[in-house]
Write a protein that binds this DNA or RNA. Structure first.
Lengths: 335, 335
DNA sequence: GTGAAAGCGCTAACAG
DNA sequence: CTGTTAGCGCTTTCAC
């Protein structure tokens, strides 16, 4: 029933291998036979069977995308959807397909990765989260399967990854605030042992130092990525210090900080991170750093596909994606 | 390098076909040889090659998911993410995989569908939007490829689909408002030629009639799915009628309606639809109908997979998914 | 430049 | 119950 390469071959009066060469656009095929073959393909409405090709040349042209399924992550944050689009964007360009799976937790993710790779359904894997001592990375490394990570892993040796330049992102935000006249600027971050937190904190410190502003421990709070810790961080800072501006490492933290300011009727400039959907719906509308998730996805796909196609001559193993401060009401005022 | 069925066969001292039967869990295999084979598989860490299986039995165990990439749709609305999870949930249960593609527009979607189906990468397709005179459906029908659509198509003959019971959803919402004492209830809907709009309107009408409340054209507005049309619809209703409550067919419409009420300082009960993320962040928090998108995805996958596996004995060709009124501040008050 | 033949790894008759 | 034998549809040496 389905038309195969043989049908095309006999109609065009050539051998199957010739047709195959035409499909692969082999250089050593006369223009004449090329034409003949194309004609036959059109007449028969021939379309190569991807599965058969995959079996023969041991490559599926498919990438596996592993998504976490934590409620908060997935819903409040357009992050993953944007990443998916970015990936899709580059993949389509290169004629790659994407299979996605949701993992209930880290172990479940590992299980899915094993399924995907053992069955050879995919040529490579894209990881969308990094954890401490990441088991997914461990597993992929062990079986030596191509993969790329969105977010900077602890141990980057021999790993493809993309991430924002968190140092610069925060550096620029703080600088911007300084330009606006702020001198007493606080920092409220998530877990202090995370790279993101550390890098963003460094950017904060550097910006202050560069402007000759004293960096004080009392202006630096870290905790969890929760509204609550944003709230308490802000509260305690308000009590002892008199910040005129506060930068945070996540919108959710910023939301808590806003709440604290409102309670104390303090008018303080606040900046969030990740530019989540809700930032625009705060009172005041929250200025936030857009991390360009779509670009993260795009370059993750690029890194992986380039490797798969051996186009990685330049040896690039990671990309730093730029960020954008989206300025809204919360940082409108000059001091 | 990779271990194949042959390796297992020779280690277990059986033929490849026997191993194949063990993999497929064929009933007519003695427990003894089953054990032998399993042992060999474990020792060799054998994993069947999915591609080879697909080629041999002409089935890929993967579904193609076609997503629209309209900004608004994708971002503001957790709809698609939820659908993806639902699909994934059922698919994983049945050991199916999902490939997704984004279509820039209808034609682009058709192109992707053709790619997916012509290359035989997928066994079936899941459509997440329905348009008037839908080209995707047309194409799929023509080539007679299994598919399911989320949303009720115009012509449902021989088509698998899932949708909410829009009639009942709205019927119950209006009833609920009536219980609360409302008698002057307005309706603001999207495009009047769409099924959703019509069905929801019918539910609205029926509920009023059942309670012996007069249905007046002046209480019914339709337009586009925009904040603007929600706003103007509300404005004009406020001018001529004195509604105490208004139901809408989309949160975005409700947002506009809220705005209009605020401007005129009218305290009117308002209900949205789709329970989007932002509904909770309105002032007042918007009551909205949750359409259970995850369930829509789940049952879409079920419908399609059941068909593919010929488990569709009962001949079910669609599911109606229940909805849930999420009550928030906007309908708190009794009249 | 093009064809013949072997094979990718697995499944599915058909025997026995 | 199990083995033998052909393929599934395409690619890829290796000749010519």
């Amino acid at each position: 029933m389905p038309v195969t390469i043989k049908d095309v071959a006999s109609l065009a009066n050539v051998s199957p291998s010739t047709v195959s060469r035409v499909i692969a656009n082999s250089p050593k095929i006369s223009d004449n036979t090329k034409k003949k073959v194309y004609k036959a393909m059109n007449e028969l409405k021939y379309h190569p069977n991807a599965i058969a090709r995959s079996l023969a040349n041991r490559t599926t042209k498919t990438l596996g995308l592993v998504l976490p399924s934590t409620e908060e992550d997935i819903f409040v944050n357009p992050f993953f959807v944007q990443i998916m689009r970015g990936i899709s964007h580059y993949a389509q360009k290169k004629n790659y397909y994407i299979m996605y799976t949701y993992g209930k937790d880290e172990l479940d993710e590992v299980k899915h990765i094993e399924n995907l790779t053992n069955s050879r359904r995919v040529d490579g894997i894209i990881l969308t989260t990094v954890r401490e001592n990441d088991k997914c990375i461990g597993c992929l490394r062990e079986i030596d399967y191509p993969f790329v990570v969105i977010g900077r892993p602890e141990d980057i040796e021999n790993i493809l990854w993309v991430d924002n330049d968190n140092f610069h992102a925060m550096y620029r935000v703080v600088n911007h605030l300084i330009q606006k006249g702020h001198r007493r600027i606080g920092f409220i971050g998530g877990e202090s042992n995370l790279y993101v937190t550390q890098n963003r904190l460094e950017g904060y410190v550097k910006a202050l130092e560069n402007s000759g502003i004293n960096v004080s421990k009392d202006f630096i709070k870290t905790g969890e990525f929760t509204e609550e810790d944003g709230y308490t961080g802000m509260k305690s800072m308000l009590k002892s210090q008199q910040p005129t501006a506060v930068v945070t490492t996540d919108d959710i933290i910023a939301f808590g900080a806003i709440k604290a300011c409102k309670e104390d009727s303090k008018d303080i400039a606040i900046v969030g991170f990740n530019n989540t959907l809700l930032s625009e719906y705060q009172q005041p509308k929250l200025s936030s750093v857009d991390i360009n998730a779509e670009k993260l996805g795009y370059f993750a796909a690029k890194l992986l596909i380039d490797k798969l196609e051996n186009n990685n001559k330049n040896g690039i193993s990671n990309y730093m994606i730029d960020t954008n401060l989206i300025e809204r009401e919360s940082t409108k005022l000059k001091v």
